[in-house]
Design a protein around this nucleic acid. Structure first.
Lengths: 334, 334
DNA sequence: GAGATCTCTGTATACGTATTCATTGTATAC
DNA sequence: GTATACAATGAATACGTATACAGAGATCTC
């Protein structure tokens, strides 16, 4: 129990060379059926598992994927992480998880160089971070998931945030809303940007002006949505609908509405973005734009594995549709 | 860019032997100050990072901790994971995350043997799983976090679930409740068990009987809490308070109450367990027993690191207090 | 029946680092 | 002045695996 048995130990036990044991382990066809059977039996009896480090050092592959994420406690991110774990595991891959908030830049830079992983999944790329460029220039296979970077020569899988936001805007306009609140994020991801721009485009196309005072830029937490709602809804003439760029903010907005006594959807409609599991809870019953988490992760991991085996193929950007999911936080009242 | 530079490459560049470069890297004092400076300069210029695999193979340490968790999307687990990531990262340790639901038993067994990690943090131990025994008998340093196993010879850090539950029960009894619902979990963790037993003990000590029909056993998801609440509250004479063993179930119960038109706390009080961030949201405003996540993780990682450097010290079980946090889902009405 | 082909196995080596051992040069002691 | 300690470095090796290479039988071809 002190030292795990090595392939050499087992070779001795089976009366063959270490090379033959290794051949059995790697399913090398050039090994006699009887020999293979005998070796397999010995391996099984000894409950042997190859040393992953030695194997990785020799083959250059670790069967491990590095995942960079932020704010795991955010419902959408948790769902994304869960899905990534599920998909990687189903392919026999391990996952090392780094949190962009916690891990200092130099740690990340070191990791990118270290070849600890066969590839990276970046889920939280922002324009003011250098992580994605470090990853890409390191030559390690990398896929941007969920958040993309326009023009970056790197595989990317993103939702069609712009179109989803556009649909949400159109839905509000079609329902007759003209005084509409917009709660956006201050940070610089492509998601929040497109979810902002697409929404504005829909309103502009319909000739609906959005008042500057109806636009609030906030941080990511629930409390910020709460504060934004209080600000918007405690005005003399509050907007009749509020759209925001994440479900988490929408939950905050719903809570803020509760706090100031505004009824949803009677007094104000609320629309979020992500369609997290929680959006379907009675407490929120939130109309929201769905992100196809499963499809995004599936496609992303496929791209990554493909690139690992085929590093020189041209990069690819996959965009997946984000359908509007209508629930009780909005209601056709026209 | 194709092949990362090795210590041997840099040794040549610096005009020293590979051994000297290695000594510089490991802060070996037996190296001349000038030589060290020259080597460091070369390392820096080349932007060199040691190959983690080779280093791990030689030293037997990977600076990586394996974390086993389940249902990352559950709010409490997400918070726990986030905290674990923060603490490990602050100590320069990487984290490999496995999900007990997704990863098959044999994968886990292999991992435990592989020496891929310096130690394990198990956060979801249940009595009907064999994971913890596999980990412990493998000889790899292991700490049980959050969920413990009574009598297991293994370091453990858990909240005082029994006492927290007892306090919650006493609080309800003191407020005059006599018809109390209890929503428990069907699975076999020590957490749900103690949160059940402690609560019952408080009621028993106060001479309050708990009707069998008031006890519902469910699975973990929100929907199960929802269903349980509907069942309990749609009776002719529903209980005046419901206590449950996780916040997630409590959220479901609150939503179920909403669904059947029961007002909280006017018609029914609700108490959860965990004090997740969400419990403080207006939508729930949940009275709940706090789990000291930060302290649990901090203590657990300390124990783990201690055991890694000192494998033979006796095992230790740390129990941390779980205070009751009173919010709007209950109100003193006597 | 001799040469050729094929199947199987063992020997030797490499991955990149940390570390033991031996060696050189320098300083110290007498 | 030699003997000894010490500081600094290089050469060699080991971690455990995968694989190129070579060699030994066995089978086949004509």
């Amino acid at each position: 129990m002190s030292r795990p048995p090595t392939s050499r130990d087992l070779a001795r036990l089976a009366g063959v060379s270490q090379a033959t044991v290794s051949r059995v382990l790697t399913n090398n066809p050039k090994v006699n059926a009887e020999t293979r059977a005998r070796v397999l039996q010995v391996l099984k009896d000894a409950n042997y598992t190859p040393n992953a480090l030695a194997r990785a050092m020799k083959t250059g592959r670790t069967d491990t994927i590095g995942v960079f994420m932020t704010r795991v406690t955010s419902p959408f991110h948790a769902e994304l992480l869960d899905e990534i774990g599920r998909v990687l595991s189903s392919m026999g891959l391990h996952m090392i998880l780094w949190n962009i908030e916690h891990d200092p830049e130099e740690t990340i830079a070191a990791v990118v160089q270290q070849r600890l992983v066969d590839g990276f999944l970046l889920t939280s790329a922002t324009y003011d971070s250098t992580l994605h460029t470090m990853a890409v220039t390191s030559g390690t296979p990398t896929v941007l998931l969920h958040r993309g970077i326009d023009g970056l020569d790197c595989d990317q899988v993103v939702g069609d945030n712009w179109q989803g936001a556009y649909d949400a805007g159109q839905y509000l306009v079609d329902a007759g809303h003209t005084d509409i609140g917009l709660v956006t994020l201050t940070h610089t991801g492509n998601t929040s940007r497109d979810r902002d721009l697409g929404f504005r485009a829909a309103l502009a196309d319909a000739g609906v002006k959005i008042k500057p005072s109806n636009v609030v830029s906030v941080g990511v937490p629930h409390a910020d949505g709460h504060a934004a709602a209080e600000k918007l809804l405690s005005r003399k003439k509050p907007p009749t609908a509020i759209y925001t760029v994440t479900d988490l903010l929408a939950f905050g907005i719903l809570d803020g509405a509760r706090a100031v006594g505004a009824r949803v959807p009677d007094d104000v409609w609320v629309i979020g973005f992500d369609n997290t599991d929680m959006a379907a809870w009675e407490a929120f019953d939130l109309t929201t734009v769905e992100q196809p988490v499963h499809a995004i992760v599936e496609a992303g991991v496929d791209l990554l594995r493909d690139r690992i085996t085929n590093p020189d193929r041209p990069t690819q950007v996959v965009t997946l549709p984000c359908p509007l999911v209508i629930r009780g936080s909005t209601a056709n009242r026209r």
